[in-house]
Structure formats: structure tokens, C-alpha cells
Nucleic acid binder design. Structure first.
Lengths: 221, 221
DNA sequence: TTTTGCTTTACGGGAAGCCGTAATGATCAT
DNA sequence: ATGATCATTACGGCTTCCCGTAAAGCAAAA
């Protein structure tokens, strides 16, 4: 089991509840902060002082307030940590269950656990602690269900940027030009049309607006 | 101060924290539930038993799970209650600070308080309890700030439904037809085009896709 | 090299969206 | 009633999108 844990979340009620869960185990140090920037500082400081954390539990979404922040989200924090430190365990504890995000965090950021902050959140957090401390990745059941359906697994980065550009108001010709200047392979107007057509069919969307709308709902963009 | 309070929120940590805040006051009954449907049943039952609640504190957004629900969101719950009961106090305690929602809830649902669930949430909740128990509406400062900027105050319900239909993949002609069958006033294709044009200018959007995309970001739809 | 199969590109016709102008309706004050 | 003002509707042109077909490019197998 873990020795030193840092908890990062906006809301004091959540901090409190996580802390309570952790108290069931004999963890020598439990710290908590409400800002990602503070989290990173605390993390660095602990490293330098020779009593590094072995687990970070963090939310993804943080409200903005009067403080201007460097790391604005849990993702930023995780990226900053993982840039140098592959060893420390990271558990994400978040409302956000958008597949795209989860996949990115697990695949690219080597996150050790992803727990959906919902009715059974506290319970699942316990499971996540057990699993990850043994080196096993933990994902909330909902997530696993959703990820096992592989329909949208085939959506490439290319498609994502395509949808993003579209949602930014670019015309198909502008998108074509965008890809041409960046030497991204299928860049002709025709190919872009074809790709969008494929996506429309996949998403059962009536038109481009509907497509972008759904992509936004799914959190793809 | 209130006598009987019902708390409605997904997450046990939040329920816990609200309950703790309420314990500071001498409130004879504090109940909490995790589903809107349960909340409504409990509310109705208390009414019939002659010990009605005088305050409901509720979140807006509830996760879906295996249970299929009738009232899926805090808005649904509030609407159901307000349909017959104008007397009971309602405080919304939510992450969601999208202006459109807040305005609707305060204006149309006569919500007595709206507290943003963020770092200072617990503190503000106290203020909200004090104010609303004296008959004063309480809104989180962030909300007040945002509402005072009147840029988007002029966006009507009409525009919202327009954007919604658009985001659902309806063509302008279909939208025209939709309005015609429902006897909603500006229903001609031409009017709809004009309206959308106005919205595009207001939102500085390049085209309809961009417009819907921004409307979604702002939480208008 | 040729064949085969796939992806990318090119083009053309029809539908939908965008935009200006003008006509019609409705409301209100004179 | 008359005119002024504003919202709604109608229409025509031009652009962009949508969709099918066909050609060109490319890679692996024969």
C-alpha cells in the first residue's frame, strides 16, 4: 500500500471524502491541495526533500477563479508530472467520463487508475487503491464497458483534427489548405468530403452540423 | 431558519458535506437522496404526512446508471416541484454555471438560491441558507458578475430552440416546417435565415457549424 | 512487369446554405 | 385614415456542401 499520497481537487468536500477513505489504510502522509499549480509545487518539493509521494489522486476539471494558473487542468498536471516521472502512481478521480480523454490518459499518460466520480465513487476508489498499489491498472466498470465497444476506436487523430477544424468554422476548402500546408496526407477537398461522409455514416449524423454536435457531446473535440 | 431539509446529489461526499453545514443550525430533519426520482417521492410523501420540507438543496446534473429514471436532472425535479408548490425554498448547488441555465432557473422556476459548487462552495452555501431563509434570493458572486454583462441577455428562447434543432441535424427547411406546425411565429425559411445570420454576427461565427459549436461551448444548448 | 486492390484526387450535378433586396403585414402615433 | 417603423416573408444569385462516378497514384503479390 502507498506511503505518501497527494490529493488534488477543487472541492473541499471531495478532498475530505478521499482523505477519509485513505485513513482506513496506514498511510503515513496525506496531503491535499485545491489547485494544480500547488499540487505540482508540492510534488516537486517532496521530491527534492527526499520524501516523494508515491500516489497522486487528482480530478481533471478545475474551476477558474481570480488566480491565474499555469496548470489549468488535471491533464496539464499529469502531463507535467509524467514528463519526468514514470514511477509515481496516478489515479484520476473525475466526473468526466468522456472516452477520448480516458483513452488518452491511460494510453499516453500511463495513468494507473481512472475512477468515475459518481454514486459509487468512494467504493470504487477503494478498489482502485488496492489494484494500483499492486501494479494493476484500475478502470471504473462504466469506462470498461464503453471502451470495449470498439465502434469509435477506429476514429483517428486525423478525424479528430478534421472535426476540430470544422467546429472552428473552417470551410472544407480551408481545411484542405490547412492539411496541404502541413503536409498531412489526405488533403484534397475530395478526400475531406469522403472522410466527413464516412464519419457522418458512423455517427448516423444528418449533416455536418449534426456531426460536430455529436462529436462535442461525446467529448471527442 | 429552516426546519426540514431535503438534500439531493449524486455523490455521497457532497451529501455529507452539505449535511455537515446544515448541522450547524438547529434543523430538526435533514434527509438526503442520490436520485431525483427518490427526491420527488420523499418530497410528496412528506407533504402527505403533514411534515413537509421547507427547503430542498439539489444538484443539477446526475449521472445515469442502471436505474432508469423519470426525473433525470435537477431541472426536471425542480420543474416537477414548482408545478404545484411555489412555497418551498429551493437552493441549487451545482458545478454548472452556464448562464442560460441559471437564468431559466431563477426566472422561470423561481429558484431561491444558486450556489456554484467550487472551492468556496461550502462557505457560500452558508450565505445562501441565511439569505434564502429570510426570503432573499442568493446567487454566487461569479453568477452575478456574469449576469450583469448583458451581451447575451437578448438571446431568446426562440433562438435557443433554433440552435437546438440545428444541432440535431435539421435543415433550415425542416426547422421552418417545425415552427409552422407548432404555430411559432417567425417560421418562414427567410426569417430563419435572418435569425441565424443575426446569431452568427453576435457570436462572431463563420458559419452554422461554428455557431452551434460555440453555443454548445457556452452551454446554451 | 503486370495484376490486383486500396487510397487519394478530380470533376459535375443537384441540394442546402448564405446574402442582399424588395414586397407584404402589423402596430402605433399623428 | 395616413404615414412611419419594424417584423415577417418572398425571391434570385452565388457559394458551399453533398454525393456519385471515374481517373490517377501507390503498394504488395504474382
Amino acid at each position: 500500500m502507498y506511503k505518501r499520497v497527494l490529493i488534488v481537487d477543487d472541492h473541499d468536500a471531495i478532498l475530505h471524502s478521499i482523505t477519509k477513505v485513505l485513513h482506513s489504510y496506514k498511510i503515513s502522509q496525506i496531503d491535499s491541495v485545491q489547485y494544480c499549480d500547488d499540487a505540482f509545487l508540492k510534488y516537486k518539493r517532496a521530491l527534492l526533500d527526499g520524501n516523494a509521494y508515491d500516489l497522486i489522486i487528482t480530478d481533471l476539471c478545475f474551476k477558474k477563479d481570480y488566480r491565474n494558473t499555469h496548470l489549468a487542468s488535471g491533464e496539464d498536471l499529469i502531463e507535467a508530472i509524467r514528463a519526468t516521472d514514470k514511477g509515481i502512481s496516478i489515479i484520476v478521480y473525475s466526473m468526466n467520463d468522456q472516452l477520448q480523454k480516458v483513452r488518452y490518459l491511460v494510453k499516453s499518460c500511463a495513468v494507473n487508475g481512472f475512477v468515475c466520480k459518481d454514486r459509487r465513487g468512494s467504493l470504487e476508489l477503494t478498489s482502485a487503491l488496492m489494484d494500483t498499489s499492486k501494479g494493476v491498472t484500475y478502470l471504473s466498470p462504466q469506462i470498461v464497458d464503453a471502451m470495449s465497444r470498439k465502434e469509435d476506436l477506429e476514429i483517428l487523430d486525423y478525424d479528430i483534427t478534421l472535426l476540430k477544424l470544422l467546429s472552428q468554422g473552417k470551410s472544407q476548402e480551408e481545411i484542405s489548405h490547412h492539411f496541404k500546408t502541413r503536409a498531412i496526407k489526405p488533403s484534397s477537398l475530395s478526400s475531406i468530403e469522403k472522410r466527413l461522409n464516412r464519419l457522418r455514416i458512423q455517427f448516423k449524423a444528418e449533416n455536418a452540423i449534426h456531426l460536430v454536435s455529436q462529436a462535442k457531446d461525446l467529448g471527442l473535440i
